[in-house]
């Protein structure tokens, strides 16, 4: 059964069809939520909430838009709201503890885990708008058009956010970039 058919059946309340859609996208949505929230349990809960929202508002989905764009739009909004809530109530933050960049030892720079942490820390330090486009562009590989549609902004706004995000990341990750420079 192709995606279009699964969506049509889901719209009619066919739960097994919706389950197939969930299984197709669950890992992408969980991983994207994790990159926003940095907590595995919260990321899974967020993904479940997102799929529930998708199911309950399935009749508002229009076939002109790609399903993944619509799904990720809901997921991004959900995660950004969560992050906003965290800023309002900083003590409710469940983020997994990440070491500060100063803790990285030069001899361990090449270790995958340290590198992962440095990248995560750099991405997390970006403002929400820049972080969102970097995550969607680098990890989910959405096109600029899709991101513009998802975030309700112009193509030039996406270009500009991505440019600023990459400039910031280049600055923060400068030691790593020099190591890997071609």
């Amino acid at each position: 059964m192709d995606e279009r058919e699964l969506i049509s059946k889901s719209k009619q309340g066919d739960r097994p069809a919706f389950r197939q859609l969930v299984e197709k996208y669950q890992d992408s949505v969980i991983n994207m939520s994790y990159r926003f929230l940095r907590n595995k349990e919260e990321a899974e809960e967020a993904a479940q909430e997102v799929f529930l929202k998708v199911y309950l508002s399935r009749n508002t989905y229009q076939h002109q838009t790609k399903f993944s764009t619509w799904l990720f739009k809901i997921a991004v909004n959900y995660c950004l709201n969560k992050l906003r809530d965290r800023k309002k109530f900083p003590f409710s933050r469940l983020e997994e503890d990440l070491p500060a960049p100063a803790e990285f030892q030069p001899d361990k720079l090449l270790e995958q885990e340290n590198l992962n942490r440095a990248i995560r820390k750099a991405i997390d330090s970006l403002p929400d708008q820049q972080r969102t486009v970097i995550l969607l562009n680098q990890f989910e590989e959405f096109s600029y058009q899709e991101m513009a549609r998802m975030l309700d902004c112009s193509l030039s706004a996406i270009e500009s956010r991505l440019f600023r995000a990459k400039e910031n990341l280049k600055r923060i990750l400068a030691p790593f970039i020099k190591k890997d420079e071609i």
Partner: peptide, 28 residues
Amino acid sequence: KELTSLSFLLKQEKESVQASPYFWNKIE
């Protein structure tokens, strides 16, 4: 070169989270 290197570097972050076995059950 720097931007290509940055993209390469970002792709190194491979940590991924798997859905728990009861993921669908909870949604249902």
